[in-house]
């Protein structure tokens, strides 16, 4: 299940035990189901959701019509998620999904576009160690060192292997934070508190999914949350 939201900002939260934890406030939905894709019509089963109203002039005529079929105003973001054929029956066009979806989940996956960092060196971009500040190091303090000979990377030929870690553009790419703890869900306000940071600046569109895969202890917590 996927819902779209907006990153509001970070603050702190004291839970019942009085533990002070950093949280990110995320505005989740309400999302409108704009299309239900089935194996017969589209070749695969999926649900498309839309989030955030926009002005008609910022949308396109085909998309305005597409949203209108779901009884919705022109929407800014559309994303789809795959479902099994059995789950498909739970969704219908025009249906509204709210943060309540996540009320029983202890964890979610959060995706978004990270903040752009510009052109960065290898120390910031790839966590290289760099060189020493002293002991005879000259003009190479933050350098990445040797990138190897051609043969070391590709066997033969004059070129380096693709993907060699060097300086370059960093950030402004899609990042997924997996198994982010759910602290509090407030469906009336369409808000949700998740533990710790999520990608991107405030105001960023985020995709929140039910957790794809959880490690042992987190999976146990999730089972308990579903029960209770």
């Amino acid at each position: 299940m996927l819902l779209l939201g907006e990153k509001i900002g970070m603050t702190r939260f004291f839970n019942e035990e009085g533990v002070n934890m950093p949280v990110t406030i995320v505005k989740v939905g309400p999302c409108v189901v704009t299309q239900v894709k089935s194996a017969e019509t589209d070749g695969y089963a999926a649900v498309q959701v839309a989030f955030g109203e926009t002005k008609p002039r910022r949308s396109t005529r085909p998309m305005i019509g597409h949203d209108a079929k779901a009884g919705a105003a022109p929407m800014r973001f559309h994303r789809e998620f795959r479902v099994t054929d059995e789950e498909l029956g739970e969704f219908e066009v025009g249906q509204t999904l709210t943060a309540e979806v996540f009320a029983k989940f202890a964890f979610v996956d959060v995706s978004g576009v990270s903040k752009g960092k510009g052109f960065q060196g290898v120390m910031k971009r790839h966590n290289f160690a760099g060189f020493e500040a002293s002991h005879g190091v000259e003009r190479k303090h933050r350098s990445g060192g040797s990138i190897g000979g051609g043969s070391a990377n590709l066997g033969t030929g004059p070129k380096l292997k693709k993907g060699k870690r060097m300086s370059g553009h960093m950030g402004a790419e899609r990042v997924t934070c997996r198994s982010v703890g759910v602290v509090k869900v407030m469906p009336e306000e369409n808000l949700m508190l998740v533990k710790g940071p999520v990608p991107g600046p405030n105001g960023q569109m985020l995709e929140l999914r039910t957790p794809s895969r959880l490690y042992k202890s987190k999976a146990r917590k999730q089972r308990e949350a579903l029960k209770g």
């Binding site: 603050t11 004291f14 505005k27 407030m186 306000e189």
Partner: peptide, 14 residues
Amino acid sequence: NRQAIIEGVVQDQL
């Protein structure tokens, strides 16, 4: 606005 939302969320914790 976003700041008002944050303040609303922490209001009952103050």
